[in-house]
């Protein structure tokens, strides 16, 4: 340990102001995010059911063992994985298609760009209610789906019975469709910003060399968009695992357990069964999954030197 030198002292006081400026934000986040996560872990190690408040006791990893052995958890995890995977894929494809369109210059582009914000501005619950109507008995999309199923049946001589939202398959994929619809604008704007950052000389050079438009997309646009696609993929993965409000309004987890995504399952565990211990173990598993994703995200960005401190 060396003797404290004067300039060392000085830099200490210089550090004080920035820390002070961060203090309000840090206090809020410590109090309402970090602390609850700690408590959540501690509670997940207890038997704690609100129906029996007198029987709260520590029992280690019992809750986790119960969950990992239950078919409900694996069912919910599987549904969430399917939901998230499909959502990420569709959001990237659709958002990319619209971003590429908005990069072209044509009359009315400003209008399309303004309309892009409609799905984004709609709250998740209201989005769910909207799609209840759209896919309900008299809904606009229900009629379209019915007609297209009838057309497929006619063309291929098969007999698929369309039962609308009563079918687990339709309900789950409709939820994905509604979730994707609302998520597209955000991803699209990120892609658009990234596309606009690509130097135009590269395209000109490629055109001179006689590259086709597909090759221009494949060898210039896509590599430049690597970072943006990564950000959207991780962001939408987290979003997919959190899907709750849409499910609450659109399917209520049904039919049966077809749309029991993991967030919904956790909510049920806590506020329907009042099993706070078990539900906290559930939440902790979700936290672990999303935290792992966040770490992968940060590491990937750092490796490419795209985040500066």
């Amino acid at each position: 340990m060396t003797v404290l030198r004067p300039f060392h002292l000085m830099s200490r006081t210089r550090d004080l102001l920035p820390l002070l400026l961060n203090l309000p934000a840090v206090i809020l986040l410590l109090a309402f995010i970090a602390y609850p996560i700690g408590i959540s872990f501690w509670m997940s190690l207890h038997r704690y059911n609100l129906r029996r408040p007198d029987q709260v006791y520590f029992h280690g990893l019992e809750n986790y063992a119960t969950i990992l052995a239950s078919s409900e958890f694996w069912n919910a995890l599987w549904i969430s994985l399917y939901f998230t995977f499909m959502a990420v894929l569709l959001v990237i494809v659709i958002a990319m298609a619209i971003a590429l369109l908005l990069h072209e210059s044509f009359r009315g582009r400003g209008v399309v760009r303004a309309l892009l914000l409609i799905p984004w501005a709609i709250p998740g619950v209201v989005n769910g209610l909207m799609w209840v109507g759209l896919l309900g008995d008299y809904g606009a999309f229900n009629a379209m789906l019915e007609d297209s199923v009838a057309a497929v049946n006619y063309l291929f001589g098969i007999n698929i019975v369309y039962t609308g939202m009563a079918s687990p398959f339709v309900a789950l994929n409709a939820a994905i469709g509604a979730h994707v619809w609302r998520s597209v604008p955000f991803a699209c704007i990120i892609f658009l910003a990234a596309i606009q950052a690509i130097p135009t000389e590269q395209y000109r050079a490629a055109r001179v060399d006689g590259a086709t438009s597909w090759n221009r997309f494949r060898f210039i646009t896509l590599p430049w968009l690597y970072h943006a696609v990564l950000v959207v993929a991780i962001f939408e993965t987290m979003n997919g695992f959190r899907a709750f409000d849409l499910i609450y309004a659109l399917t209520g987890g049904g039919p049966g357990d077809a749309t029991h995504v993991i967030a919904w399952q956790t909510y049920k565990e806590a506020f329907a069964r009042l099993d706070f211990g078990g539900a906290n173990a559930y939440s902790y598993l979700i936290t672990l999954i999303t935290m792992t994703l966040a770490i992968i995200y940060i590491r990937l960005l750092y490796r490419r030197g795209l985040v500066q401190g």
């Binding site: 309402f32 995010i33 408590i39 959540s40 979700i286 936290t287 401190g309």
Partner: peptide, 29 residues
């Protein structure tokens, strides 16, 4: 300032915490 990277990671990390993960402690709080 020293620790700015740590703070940045703290902010990035808190952004990735899902609401369901803290709903029960928040409710009790």
């Amino acid at each position: 300032f020293r620790g700015n990277l740590l703070l940045l990671l703290f902010y990035l990390g808190s952004r990735s915490v899902p609401g369901v993960a803290i709903m029960i402690p928040m409710y009790l709080l």
